[in-house]
Structure formats: C-alpha cells, structure tokens
C-alpha cells in the first residue's frame, strides 16, 4: 500500500516546502511552524502526528489559507498545489481551488457548521459558489451527498439545522461538504477526536472508503497513533513546529528513528499492558515563545547529550544497517542510528 517516495513526489498534489508561521502575541512571537515540509500524492494518505500545540493545525490552516492573520503570519516557505504556489497566487485564483480542489474537514463539526443555516443550505453552498448552481438544484445535490455519506432519511433532514444532528451525523455532513466537488485533496484535522469512541471507527472507515473511491490525497491530522496504522501510507511526526521524523507507516511502527516517536509509540495503551501504568513522555512540550536551543526535544529526551543542546538536528536520511538508504525515511535526531539500530 505504501508508495515509494519517488513515485509520490513525482505525482505530488501538494508539496509544503519549508513553511514557517509565527504568531505575534502579547508575550512575544510564538514560532508555531518552523520549516515544515511534506508532500502528498493522489490516493495517498499522509498522517501528521504530534502532541497538542506542535503546529499540526497551523500548518494545515496555512495551506488552506484560513490562518488568523493577524496575529498569525507566514514568514517563509511555499505551498505548492500541482506545482503552483498557493501563497503567492492571486486570492481569487486561490479561492477557486479552495473547496473545489482542496477541501478541509474540521475537528468539531458542531462549531464548524454555521448554526443558523440548514445543513442543506450549507452543503448546497459549495455548488452555488463554485458551479453557479440554482438553490433548488443545489439542495437536490445536498440530499445526494447526504445519502452518499449514509445519513438516514436525507431527503427529510436536508432542511434541518446542525444542532439537530448527532455528533457522528454532523461529522458525516462535514465529510459530505468536503467531498461535494470531488476534490484532489482533503485535509482532515482530527476528524474523529470529538466523537464517541464507537462512532470514531465508522467515520474513519467512511472517510477512507471515499478517499479510495475518488483516489484523493488525504492529510490526516491526529494525535491518535491507533487510528493511523490502518489508514495512512506515511507519517510525519511533528514536535514544536518541526517535522522530526517521516516514514512509511509500517516502518515507523516497526522501528522509530527518533526518540520522540519512540516515546509516542510506547505511550499507546496496549491490551497486554493491562494493569501497568501507561507510559508517558516526561515533561511538557516547550513554550513556542522560548523553544530550547539545539534539539527542541532535548529537555525531555532520555538520550540527550551535549551536542543536542548546542546543535539543531536537521531532518536527514535514515539508512539501514547495511548503510542503504531507506526510502521515505528521515529523522531529525543526532542519534537516529542509535535510536533505530541500537
């Protein structure tokens, strides 16, 4: 299932390149994204992992063009959609891509849907805005979409308001809205976090199924490593606004090349661990106002050495024990070799 780095890059739908975002706050400048690069191809799923505050959402918002500016500002980098830089293109051109070519699914559908318009109106808006469809036709398409994401009695419920639906149904409506114009790429920012555990799997399955059907690229933002294993092709792990490790999903699970990833994997609850205390990485993520020198992870890292406090580790190729390049694998750790092989 995992595609090689080369084929993915060749067909890259979206390529984020050295993106930098900061927020000017009362207390200083919070450097939320510090040179993030990733790419997604058609039909490919990239999972972006990381603790709260690591910059996953801010990166996605910068791609989507929905950052709060101010206080946010993009201080560097490019966001290439089919080779065109979204950050420098005229707003009108970019708007035509939003919703039509790149769509987004938000974490909390209740707050992401407008409370004063019916779901049919909001679903139909995509067609009215991008295709100049009439109100009546757009409503008909809205019912089709609701059917498509398996909302029962869609025709009767199309004029209902968001608060009249259950959490799971609302998230299906968000998915339907993102899917409306069959975009090339969907960015899903923690699409199941706000849902009941029982509903989470259903919604995730639906999303994966539709993605496969339309051969869309998918950026799946989550801090739930459990969800990722089943659906993702590759993973990017973020820490303090940087990507610290990338890898094809199964290789990452089999052998992380960064102590932070290792810690994340160890903190997944497992059945055979029942009764034991759950492992947690010690300490807290750094304040983005004062990111530690050297490796941002060093105050929490069990392997940290002097070098880690002085020198910023760059994302570098990861090699296997014979010294051959492992495609798609990168780690931003001075001691990736020891972490992976040691």
């Amino acid at each position: 299932m995992a595609k090689s780095e080369e084929s993915a890059a060749g067909a890259a739908l979206l390529q984020v390149d050295d993106l930098q975002v900061e927020f000017v706050t009362r207390d200083g400048v919070a450097r939320a994204v510090n040179g993030v690069s990733y790419s997604v191809g058609a039909g490919e799923t990239l999972a972006v992992l990381g603790e709260s505050g690591s910059g996953k959402s801010v990166t996605a918002q910068a791609v989507m063009g929905i950052l709060d500016m101010p206080p946010g500002r993009i201080t560097g980098g490019r966001v290439l959609y089919r080779g065109q830089d979204l950050l420098t293109m005229p707003e009108e051109q970019r708007r035509r891509i939003r919703g039509r070519k790149i769509a987004m699914i938000f974490q909390d559908a209740l707050s992401a849907l407008n409370p004063v318009f019916s779901v049919g109106w909001q679903l139909g808006e995509v067609f009215r805005v991008h295709e100049g469809m009439s109100k009546k036709d757009s409503l008909r398409r809205a019912v089709e979409l609701m059917d498509r994401v398996r909302i029962p009695a869609a025709a009767q419920r199309v004029n209902d308001y968001p608060h009249q639906f259950s959490g799971g149904m609302r998230q299906r409506i968000m998915i339907a809205m993102a899917l409306a114009l069959e975009p090339d790429l969907i960015i899903a920012d923690e699409p199941t976090t706000a849902l009941d555990v029982t509903v989470q799997a259903q919604v995730m399955d639906l999303l994966a199924e539709l993605q496969a059907e339309y051969n869309m690229g998918l950026i799946l933002i989550t801090h739930d490593l459990g969800v990722v294993a089943d659906v993702a092709d590759k993973i990017a792990v973020m820490y303090a606004g940087r990507i610290v490790e990338t890898a094809p999903v199964h290789e990452l699970y089999a052998g992380p090349a960064h102590p932070y990833t290792k810690g994340l994997l160890r903190s997944i609850p497992r059945l055979d661990q029942k009764g034991q205390d759950l492992y947690a990485i010690k300490g807290l993520p750094p304040s983005l106002l004062h990111i530690p020198d050297g490796c941002a992870f060093n105050p929490r890292c069990e392997r940290a050495a002097d070098r880690c406090r002085a020198e910023l580790p760059l994302l570098q190729a990861v090699l296997d024990e014979d010294g051959a390049d492992l495609p798609g694998r990168r780690s931003a750790c001075h001691f990736w070799k020891e972490t992976l092989h040691g």
């Binding site: 891509i97 939003r98 919703g99 987004m104 992401a112 849907l113 808006e125 805005v129 991008h130 809205m177």
Partner: peptide, 9 residues
C-alpha cells in the same frame, strides 16, 4: 464556521 466557509471557497 467562518473558517469553514472560507475553506469552502
């Protein structure tokens, strides 16, 4: 929901 609307184009 304003972000949603912008993201919808």
């Amino acid at each position: 929901y304003v972000k949603t609307a912008i993201a919808k184009g």
